[in-house]
Simulated scan of single mutants.
Amino acid sequence: MNNRRFLLLFSTVLTLLFSGCDTNIIEDSNHAMPSRNWSYADKVKIVVDITDSSKPYNIYFKLRHTADYRYSNIFVLLNVKGGQKKRSRRYEFKLAQPDGQWNGSGSGNLYTYVFPLLTQFKFPAPGRYELELEQNMRDNPLKEVSDVGIKVSQAN
């Protein structure tokens, strides 16, 4: 009976360990904002090497803020630079319900979000691409933003 429990526990732990790994992730970065203030100058940048431009990719915006964040939304700019070309796009994301309830997953005073920016996106050609996120709100700095990140994964 004890051997069965041990084997069940062991196989459950192994399943959880291996199911949490995403082998499709190309880049996943988080940047802590100084004093929880995201200023215009604090642009979050990553560089990805794309070897196969025929494959689609997903690009995500990752955000963590405190309960003291003043707004129910956030505007960000995504800049994609490759070679001589630069592509920019503005996004708005809803962070809270009309009643003030945060949409993100909470842990203590922090709320975490992962928003899709580009899904099934194909880079125009193989090469190095710089992805840059910047806050595009009226407040500078934008207070109570703890962390910002970018995640790039190969789409399934």
Rank of each mutant, 00 (worst) to 15 (best):
R4Y: 09
R5W: 06
F10E: 15
T12N: 15
V13H: 08
L16E: 09
L16P: 13
S19D: 04
G20S: 15
C21S: 13
N24R: 15
N24F: 01
H31R: 12
A32D: 00
M33C: 04
N37C: 06
W38T: 05
W38R: 04
W38V: 02
S39M: 01
D42W: 01
K43Q: 14
V44G: 11
K45D: 07
K45P: 05
I46E: 08
V48I: 15
V48M: 04
D49F: 07
D49S: 06
D49R: 10
D52S: 10
S53R: 02
S53A: 02
F61A: 08
L63V: 06
H65Y: 09
D68F: 12
Y69T: 09
Y71P: 10
N73Y: 09
N73P: 02
L78A: 13
V80C: 07
V80F: 00
V80T: 12
V80H: 05
K81A: 12
K81L: 15
K81M: 14
G83K: 11
K86A: 15
R87G: 05
R90H: 08
Y91C: 07
E92H: 13
L95D: 00
A96N: 12
A96C: 15
Q97P: 00
P98V: 13
G100H: 13
G100V: 06
W102I: 05
G104L: 11
G104Q: 05
G104D: 10
G108S: 01
N109W: 02
L110I: 00
Y111S: 10
T112Q: 13
Y113T: 03
L117I: 06
T119H: 06
T119A: 07
Q120N: 08
Q120D: 10
Q120T: 10
K122P: 11
K122D: 03
F123Q: 03
P124W: 01
R128I: 08
Y129R: 00
L131S: 01
N136E: 03
P141L: 00
E144T: 02
D147W: 09
V148M: 05
G149E: 05
I150A: 11
S153V: 01
N156S: 13
